[in-house]
Simulated assay, not measured.
Amino acid sequence: MAREYVDTRDPYLKIAADIRRKITRGDIAPGTQLPTVMQLMEQYQRVSNTTIQKALQLLKEEEIVEGRPGKGVFVRQHSQQAIEPMAYMSPAGPGEPYKWMTEAAKHEQVGGARLLDVAVVTPPAEVAAALELEEGEQALLRKLILTLDGQPTELTHSYYPLGLCEGTPMLEKRRIKGGTPALLNSLGFPPREFIDEVSAEIPTEEEAVALELPKGMPVLVAFRVVYSDDRRPIEATLMTKAAHRYRMRYRMQLGEGEANV
């Protein structure tokens, strides 16, 4: 017999979660006015005015809804945006800007990238294993914050084998035209394959500050390993996104006959 489980979260958190899910899944469309506080109190089994107000305030802090004085609370136009990792995998061509910028422009957005740090470090265990480093071997870390229309979108920690970086601008604390994938491609290390592992996690303090997260908001963490020819690992990156703003979209083609497996 399945054990009985009770959701012990505060009522306002459960109400906010219910409204949030209806918005992110399209049951409440952008621009829609939410029911009044009195209507929501009735809808959620006669909870208090304070509980409803706290739930709505949380959704406002997450920028999912907005209050309009004298009118009510409305769903914002862009409550959650889908990001397609595959769109960013091909390196930028000679003289072209970083892929993040060109993809943002396709969606009529302004992409930005700010380099936070460049350092030779002892990488986390999973990074060392992914890059096939010897015990104690160091790697190059390049840390960036990516933005869309000025809003912090993604915190990235990208690690590279030092052997690929020696004598290149990757070791310098400055942006690289087209990004590091374009530079690696020009050096004879084109991306041939990547593997993503995506998880929902509680943010670290660094992530919460960098992404300006509301209290209690989880993050999407994608751990990506990029391989070049002969399946040589050339990059391992931790990409952290705010869970309430973005979702990951993967598009895959199935070979003939595979769809029925």
Rank of each mutant, 00 (worst) to 15 (best):
A2M: 13
A2V: 12
R3F: 14
D7Y: 12
D7H: 09
D10I: 03
L13H: 14
A16K: 10
A16S: 15
K22N: 14
T24F: 14
T24W: 14
T24D: 11
G26P: 05
D27W: 12
I28N: 04
I28F: 07
P30L: 11
P30C: 10
V37L: 10
Q39T: 15
E42Q: 15
N49G: 01
I52G: 07
A55H: 04
L59S: 04
E62N: 00
I64P: 01
E66W: 01
G67W: 01
G70K: 02
V73M: 10
H78R: 13
Q81M: 12
A82P: 06
E84A: 07
A87Q: 11
A92M: 08
P94V: 09
P94L: 09
W100G: 02
W100D: 01
T102S: 15
A105V: 11
K106P: 05
H107N: 06
V110W: 04
V110G: 00
R114K: 14
L115T: 03
D117F: 01
A119P: 02
V121C: 06
A125G: 03
V127M: 11
A129L: 05
A129N: 08
A130G: 03
A130Y: 04
L133Y: 03
G136C: 12
G136H: 11
L140T: 08
L141V: 06
L144T: 12
L146W: 03
L148G: 04
L148R: 15
E154C: 13
H157V: 01
S158N: 08
Y160S: 00
L164R: 12
L164M: 07
C165K: 10
G167A: 06
P169N: 08
R174H: 10
R174W: 01
R175F: 09
R175A: 13
K177W: 05
G179Y: 14
P181V: 07
A182S: 15
L184H: 07
N185C: 08
S186L: 04
L187D: 04
G188K: 04
P191S: 08
E193M: 15
F194I: 02
F194Q: 07
I202F: 03
E206D: 12
V209G: 00
A210V: 07
A210P: 01
E212M: 09
E212S: 11
L213W: 04
P214A: 06
G216S: 05
V219H: 00
F223H: 09
V225H: 00
V225T: 15
D230N: 15
D230M: 11
R231C: 02
R232I: 10
T237D: 01
T240V: 15
K241L: 15
A242F: 11
A242S: 15
A242L: 05
A242N: 06
Q253L: 13
L254K: 10
E256N: 04
E256H: 06
G257V: 09
G257I: 06
N260M: 01
N260C: 02
